[in-house]
C-alpha cells in the first residue's frame, strides 16, 4: 500500500511522483513544493521519472505559516 501524506492512496506501484502530484492537484510548476519518498528528498527534476515501490511513503510538503 502506497501512503501519501499519511493516507493510503489509490496509487499503483510503478507510478511516478508526478502522477501522485497530479492527483493531489499540485501542478508540475507549483512553487514552494517538495517531495520526499521514504525519507529521501526527490528533486523536482526527477518527479516525472521516479517510480514508486508498492510500500512507498510519500510526503508532499509546502510552505505554511509558522515559526
Amino acid at each position: 500500500m502506497i501512503i501519501v501524506n499519511g493516507q493510503p492512496a489509490d496509487v499503483d506501484a510503478g507510478e511516478t511522483v508526478m502522477m501522485v502530484l497530479v492527483r493531489l492537484g499540485v501542478e508540475s510548476q507549483a512553487r514552494g513544493v517538495a517531495v520526499a519518498v521514504d525519507g529521501e528528498v526527490i528533486p523536482r527534476s526527477q518527479w516525472s521519472e521516479f517510480a514508486l515501490d508498492r510500500d512507498a511513503r510519500v510526503e508532499v510538503v509546502t510552505a505554511m505559516q509558522g515559526g
Binding site: 493531489l24 510526503e59 509546502t62 510552505a63 505554511m64
Partner: peptide, 27 residues
C-alpha cells in the same frame, strides 16, 4: 519564517505570494 507542512489544496501558494509582495527574505 515559514514552516513546512503537508500540501493542503485549499491554501497552497498564497502565503508565498504575500511574502513576495512584501519583498521579505523567506526563512
Amino acid at each position: 519564517t515559514v514552516a513546512m507542512r503537508r500540501v493542503d489544496a485549499a491554501t497552497r501558494g498564497s502565503l508565498l505570494d504575500v511574502l513576495e509582495v512584501a519583498g521579505v527574505f523567506v526563512l
